[in-house]
Nucleic acid binder design. Structure first.
Length: 841
RNA sequence: GCGAGCGUGCUGAAAUUGGUAAACAGACAGGACUUAAAAUCCUGCGGGUGGCAACACCCUUGUGGGUUCAAGUCCCACCGCUCGCACCA
């Protein structure tokens, strides 16, 4: 019979902590605050390993800072709007609200069992009207401040989820959730004016010192700033002109055609042209599939543009699939000699290719910008280098008023309309006379109706018999409600603010709470949100600021992106995935039973746990079998947080065995103690243990601060190995092991607290301040110095700390060794105090 | 194609940022206890050469070169893997 019974002790302490409301947090200006946040989950109903890892990392952090004297805020909530609820509703004819609430209930009970130090009194759920009514208010504020607008545009349409997706939500031409190929569809949509903040969002990345460089770079690339110029090309024999954008204005003398996107405003002149419409549809289709990414097709508009600097030079105007409406002005000049795409296009349509840069490279297209290169065939730009030519041409076009220097961004406004039911209703009404009005404050929240029919076709809010019918409160005129709902990324763009004042009913958050708790000090989540959620949130605080809210400029001070939890994969020869637990290894090969037969399976590489690859391990059953403390310990000890974690049941078992062993040792003869009367008469063995323990306090704390949990755990194991080996007794035994329990407490809280309790102490570790490391050495002041000859290790010597070079050399030369050193023959002796001495012969 | 990161035992990894490579674990092997197994405990565990032996010497951080008294760490080239972006003018 095992003494260590996590099932009982974990429940016991969880109940105790809950009863004492030990994790409740209050704003307290007399104390330093610390806001730890993990990305809140979508309530699918079951937690997965990623959650367990994420929340363990956060919890260890939260507990560490709490014990170090900080006033910690560590809340949890639910990102509870979204497609799966609706799909479940269609499939199993349940109400999305009931489905979601049930999921929250079961997921919460799973999370509770992990022993997280969460202030559950701050729990929020985005599908709760108490949450989304504030969100609707925020939307209205945005609306009134011109940060949200409606426009017709071609949007990304997901044919499976039957909704529009934002650009960020289209990955490789496919919907981020459904995986369906996204189509182009023209719809009237609400947009958030995120592009207005492009420059700020980009520039302020520099301030985020504690964000991973990788994430910052991804955001930088996504915002995608490029500097260049806009240049006006007059259309020949017309009053119209085209503004093109280029980053290479100096190549203007090489311009031999104009290319426009099929969605460029000039295309409106050709809408009566069958051939153009056919061409346009072909282009839109090509952009959807992305298969033919390199193929360039053109449609000669029959129009010509006048070259702004070459008299009587007419250049043809094309529409082409390779010019994107999303970027710049949707119009370019083609300079085939110095742009790869223009080159291919020019070849295809027999357009002249004029070289205007003289360089060492002979071959065209030549696209590089080298300092040594100079311009040719370019009139007043001739003989200038590229940088110079750029400046000259920009000056010139600005003087002639046919263009200007400008900066363009790739980042586009964020489309937030979704044609789905299970989301936050957009608080807008359309009056019969065409006015678009924000809903009055007093009418908020606009609630989702419960009596809906969910089918796979159409928007339930649109189809509801009367939900959308309303009146204008001012004029009494008939009106209809907006039936689209908000993208769920809208919900998660401000939840971290709501956690500061979770029950405030008048306002989304209170200034005094925000000024105390914000920004989030450590934000922990998956790297998959590097752009979407994190960029939206950064935008949101800026937009809220514009609306007069007192929020910090950056919401997340430090970001930790944790890696995925991976597990081995197996499949049969006909590519069917097999669960790893059903695979047996024998004779160096892998086998599984199928029916009555045993067949060979192929071991694939370890991949992120996913249902489709059948390599999922359910954390709840692990917690049930081995206990939360074992699971928590494993989650952080194998790999550093930012790296992928390889799931290993052997690893879990080993952690469990380890805890059992320590539990056994401390089950008898142990008395928990916080103080220790250090004195000079300690035995050597006691001095060593004291020193080791205090060194561990220091190194463990440093590792935890720097998110090196794997090495932190290694240090605890070194400590326990040492303490076991030394066979201590009495006060020193109690002291060292007490420190050990207090350190490991942040990882295995139930385990530590139970052992304290069992030892007869009534101390609650949560209430004891983190131990301070005493780094003065009570034992000998010896160090080990490595002896090298020509940089190769020849031996070591244990000697007094801070020994001088000369004395050390004397000692080494005078001692008996396997190597002989003749000081007279050495060319040089390199000495690094207390570390190394190197004799160069 | 562009950008970023990584490459260390059988495996997960560590290395105070230029100073004893492989800490701490897992797997495996051998031993003790046991009638036996499990559990537990002990020992070994990068490669090679020499020796009965304790031991000694040499090699080893993807490959090749370089800087340095000293390189897993810095520089150059190449190979491989992973991730992000991808007609962005």
């Amino acid at each position: 019979m095992k003494k260590y019974n996590p099932e009982i002790i974990e429940k016991k302490w969880q109940n105790y902590w809950a009863e004492k409301r030990i994790y409740k947090s209050r704003a307290d200006k007399t104390k330093k605050k610390f806001y730890v946040l993990e990305m809140f989950p979508y309530p699918s109903g079951k937690i997965h390993m990623g959650h367990l890892r994420n929340y363990t990392i956060g919890d260890v952090t939260a507990r560490f800072y709490k014990l170090n004297g900080y006033n910690v805020l560590h809340p949890m909530g639910w990102d509870s709007f979204g497609m799966p609820a609706e799909n479940a509703a269609i499939e199993n004819s349940v109400n999305p609200k009931d489905w979601t609430e049930n999921n929250i209930k079961s997921m919460k009970s799973q999370l509770m069992k992990i022993g997280l130090s969460i202030d559950w009194e701050r729990e929020i759920s985005t599908c709760d009207a108490n949450y989304y009514k504030h969100q609707q208010k925020i939307f209205i504020e945005f609306f009134k401040n011109g940060l949200v607008y409606k426009k017709d545009s071609f949007v990304n349409w997901d044919p499976v989820d039957k909704t529009v997706l934002a650009n960020e939500q289209v990955i490789d031409g496919k919907g981020w959730r459904s995986g369906a190929i996204v189509e182009k569809k023209k719809l009237s949509q609400w947009f958030l004016n995120i592009s207005k903040f492009s420059e700020e969002l980009l520039g302020d990345l520099n301030q985020l010192e504690s964000w991973p460089e990788k994430v910052k770079l991804m955001q930088k690339n996504w915002i995608g700033m490029s500097e260049g110029a806009e240049i006006k090309f007059k259309i020949y024999q017309s009053k119209l002109s085209i503004d093109i954008f280029t980053t290479r204005p100096e190549t203007i003398f090489g311009a031999s055609f104009i290319a426009l996107s099929v969605e460029h405003k000039l295309s409106s002149q050709f809408l009566g042209d069958e051939k153009f419409l056919e061409f346009r549809n072909k282009c839109l289709k090509m952009q959807e599939t992305r298969d033919s990414v390199q193929e360039k097709i053109g449609f000669h508009s029959s129009l010509f543009a006048e070259h702004p600097f070459i008299k009587n030079e007419k250049i043809p105007i094309f529409f082409s699939n390779y010019v994107l409406i999303n970027y710049g002005n949707g119009a370019i000049f083609g300079c085939p000699a110095h742009d790869e795409r223009d080159y291919h296009f020019a070849k295809e349509y027999n357009i002249p290719i004029k070289c205007i840069i003289k360089s060492k490279e002979k071959e065209l297209p030549y696209c590089e910008e080298n300092k040594a290169d100079i311009l040719i065939n370019s009139e007043f730009l001739n003989e200038k280098n590229i940088k110079n030519a750029k400046e000259t041409i920009i000056e010139k076009i600005e003087k002639l008023k046919i263009g200007r220097k400008c900066v363009k961004f790739k980042l586009k406004d964020w489309g937030v309309s979704r044609q789905r039911y299970w989301g936050c209703p957009i608080p807008i009404i359309y009056r019969k006379d065409g006015e678009i009005l924000a809903v009055e404050d007093s009418e908020l929240p606009i609630r989702l109706p419960n009596d809906i029919k969910l089918t796979s076709i159409g928007n339930p809010l649109e189809d509801h018999p009367h939900w959308k019918i309303t009146k204008c409160p001012e004029t009494g005129m008939e009106a209809v409600r907006e039936t689209d709902t908000l993208d769920t990324f809208f919900d998660s763009s401000w939840y971290f603010l709501r956690f500061c004042s979770p029950i405030s009913s008048k306002e989304p958050f209170k200034d005094e709470d925000i000024s105390y708790w914000m920004p989030v000090d450590h934000y922990i989540g998956g790297v998959e949100h590097a752009i979407l959620h994190l960029l939206y949130s950064r935008f949101f605080v800026r937009a809220l600021k514009v609306c007069g809210k007192q929020v910090p400029k950056e919401p997340f001070k430090k970001l930790i992106t944790q890696g995925m939890v991976c597990h081995e994969t197996f499949r049969t020869k006909d590519n069917k995935w097999i669960e790893p637990k059903n695979v047996i290894k024998e004779k160096g090969k892998y086998w599984t039973n199928q029916g009555s037969k045993t067949i060979e399976v192929i071991k694939g590489r370890s991949e992120k746990m996913s249902k489709s690859k059948k390599n999922i391990v359910d954390p709840d059953s692990i917690v049930f079998t081995y206990g939360a403390d074992t699971a928590r310990l494993f989650m952080i000890s194998d790999s550093p947080p930012e790296r992928d974690l390889e799931w290993s049941i052997d690893g879990i078992k080993a952690m469990n065995k380890y805890l059992e062993k320590i539990y056994d040792i401390l089950s008898s003869e142990f008395n928990f103690t916080v103080t220790f009367p250090k004195d000079k008469d300690m035995l050597d063995q006691e001095k060593r243990a004291y020193e080791f323990t205090n060194k561990t306090i220091y190194t463990f704390s440093e590792d935890v601060k720097n998110y090196r949990f794997n090495t932190a755990v290694a240090k605890l194991r070194e400590l326990s190995n040492h303490l076991i080996k030394e066979k201590l007794e009495g006060q020193i035994f109690n002291y060292c092991w007490s420190i050990y329990l207090r350190l490991i407490y942040i990882i295995t809280p139930h385990f530590s607290q139970e052992l304290v309790y069992k030892s007869g102490s009534d101390q609650i570790i949560e209430n004891i301040e983190w131990p301070q490391a005493d780094l003065t050495k009570p034992s000998n002041n010896k160090v080990i110095i490595v002896i090298q000859i020509n940089g190769k290790k020849k031996g070591v010597i244990e000697i007094d700390e801070n020994i001088k070079k000369d004395r050390l050399i004397k000692t080494i030369v005078g001692s008996q060794n396997n190597y002989s050193i003749d000081v007279k023959k050495t060319k040089k002796i390199i000495f690094v105090p207390n570390k190394i001495i190197n004799f160069v012969i």
